[in-house]
Amino acid sequence: MFFVCVAAFLGLSFLIALVIICRMVILVKHKEEYKPGKSGSVRVLVVAGSGGHTTEILRLMESLSPCYNPRHYVIAETDTMSKDKICCLEVSRKYKYAEQEYTIHKIPRSREVHQSWSSTLLTTLHSLLYSGPLVFTLKPDLILCNGPGTCVPLCVSALLLGVLGIKRILIVYVESICRVETLSLSGKILYYLSDYFFVQWPNLKEKYPRSIYLGRVV
């Protein structure tokens, strides 16, 4: 078990290192040039976490124009509450705008609350197996997420598609409003992997200068 963990860890770190390097070189240069919205609509993959994360991200979704269509929501398998909240929002959107489409997808959670960090690595790898094919099938133009653990494997998959030249996917990360002084673990990872990284408190902007601070956005 120990060796499996070590091997998995080394494998993952190598993969992440590789991804980061490739990304730095190829993608960041062209970040400003990639404007999927020019075609008139943007396919969005929204990572809804659980509880507070879902509430926050849905508030952001509420404000988006009907051009963000279709919207593919990803929730953790064990999450029952989020689905209802999403449907509720989508019903109101349908009422406001015509021809809106959305789907909901479930993937295994990469980390349950209180789960140990070493086993988190394995479950993250496990959920990577699911998120890879999912991102590949949906091929969104944009991933929008705000910090549930589930978003890391999804964003890594999105990056891989970009690195492999299959599909360029913009990764937009909005750190949860709960994070005033420190980034979440997902935030610390995606600070380096996302295209646009938003924080909602000035202290974080100071600590993480590459981040974007517009004030509280939820």
């Binding site: 952001l60 124009s65 051009c67 937009v172 517009l214």
Partner: peptide, 13 residues
């Protein structure tokens, strides 16, 4: 919260 500002920023992005 300034959700509108976020939405506009995202539109530009």
């Amino acid at each position: 919260g300034k959700t509108e500002e976020f939405a506009n920023f995202l539109d530009r992005i």
